[in-house]
Amino acid sequence: MLHLRAVPCSPLPGRLTEGPLWDDRRQELLWVDIPEGLVHRAALTDGRDGSDGSEEHDLALLATLRFDRPVGAVALCASGALLVAAGASFLRVEEDRPVAEAVELAAAEFPDDGLPRRMNDAAVDPAGRLLAGTMAFDESPGAGALYRLDGDGLVTLLDSVSISNGLGWSPDGSRLYYADSPTGRVDVFAYDPETGALSDRRPFAVLDRGVPDGLTVDSEGRVWVAVWGGGEVLAFTPEGTLHARVEVPASHVTSCAFAGPARDVLVITTATAGLDEERLRAEPDAGRLFVCRPGATGLPTTPYADR
């Protein structure tokens, strides 16, 4: 098993940075800060040797979009726009237009039970459909759901979800990996690439500490899982065997994605949310983005099929 260590990048800490996404067309990285309602875009510098012999990268912030509600995730659109899961809505945003001119493509119909909910993690499947999950602000069990958005509208795939999180597909698109965080495990579904239908849900990997948050899949089919409360990213083979452990000097690790021209740099997001003053002093880089080069490459980023 590989043992690796991630090092911080340059952006200032966020409260709950999430959803890193590599834009192959513009060669830039996007990510969100959920409670602040922010979508960031940055350039990733070439690697250089650090003082400890490790390779370091920096992120140069290029632009930030600000929304009036929490932003759970951002995706690329085939048209060149962005698709933002914000509050209860899916918003199509032209980057050269004001956020106020965003077009709502659909909105989730939350139960009328007085329990506030919001969008959380989201990802685009190999056919260009968006899967996005929700959760209650107070993390009430069973209050969330998993949705699919495509040209035919919004469909509920799963209900009674607590904290809908990581989503990723096997290289051939026949498997969907999914984390409902409080379960403490990542599940795998059989996935129909033609219809987007789910079936045959079963446990894929059970964590020994912390809970699974965001995840990504590499070109060899390995599943890289951010561990909230564990200060690490774990990689599992397609058979569910532990392949690598990436140490992150921040306990609340939220997500990860492969970035860079060769998609061989693992970018890891973290959070300060939920840390008390003592933990914040012990983790001065919490909330920042981290990188490492784990000897794997990511899959190309599929855009949402909006044309």
Results as ranks from 00 to 15, higher is better:
62 L>Y: 04
257 A>Q: 05
157 L>I: 13
49 D>Y: 06
101 E>N: 11
74 V>A: 08
279 R>Y: 07
238 P>D: 14
17 T>M: 06
223 V>F: 14
264 D>Y: 11
305 A>D: 11
63 A>E: 08
272 T>G: 08
51 S>R: 13
96 D>K: 05
169 W>K: 03
88 A>E: 10
128 G>M: 10
142 G>Q: 10
61 L>D: 06
111 P>E: 12
134 T>E: 01
121 D>F: 01
155 V>F: 11
296 A>M: 02
9 C>N: 04
38 L>E: 07
20 P>E: 06
232 E>P: 04
105 L>H: 06
215 L>T: 03
71 V>F: 07
189 F>G: 05
299 L>M: 06
155 V>K: 07
269 T>R: 03
227 V>F: 09
167 L>T: 01
140 S>W: 08
166 G>T: 15
62 L>A: 15
70 P>R: 10
82 L>Q: 03
139 E>W: 15
234 L>M: 07
164 S>P: 01
250 A>E: 08
250 A>D: 04
8 P>R: 01
46 D>Y: 12
257 A>I: 08
175 R>N: 05
46 D>G: 14
13 P>F: 13
8 P>L: 05
195 T>I: 12
219 S>K: 11
252 H>C: 04
294 P>C: 10
8 P>C: 07
170 S>M: 02
11 P>N: 10
226 A>Y: 03
193 P>G: 15
7 V>S: 15
193 P>D: 15
169 W>F: 03
19 G>W: 09
227 V>D: 06
100 A>T: 11
214 G>K: 06
51 S>N: 09
230 G>L: 02
241 T>I: 13
69 R>C: 15
57 H>T: 05
156 T>V: 13
235 A>K: 00
110 F>G: 01
59 L>V: 08
69 R>S: 13
304 Y>L: 00
145 A>W: 03
58 D>F: 04
173 G>P: 01
124 V>W: 00
282 A>Q: 08
280 L>R: 14
140 S>H: 14
27 Q>C: 11
89 S>D: 12
125 D>M: 10
166 G>Q: 04
41 R>L: 05
119 M>F: 14
157 L>N: 07
241 T>P: 06
189 F>A: 03
171 P>F: 10
303 P>L: 00
132 A>F: 03
71 V>R: 06
99 V>Y: 11
49 D>P: 00
211 V>T: 07
94 E>V: 13
257 A>H: 02
217 V>Y: 00
217 V>Q: 08
187 D>S: 08
96 D>L: 12
234 L>C: 12
57 H>S: 05
230 G>Q: 05
243 H>K: 10
65 L>Q: 02
244 A>I: 06
149 L>P: 02
149 L>G: 03
14 G>C: 07
159 D>P: 00
300 P>H: 09
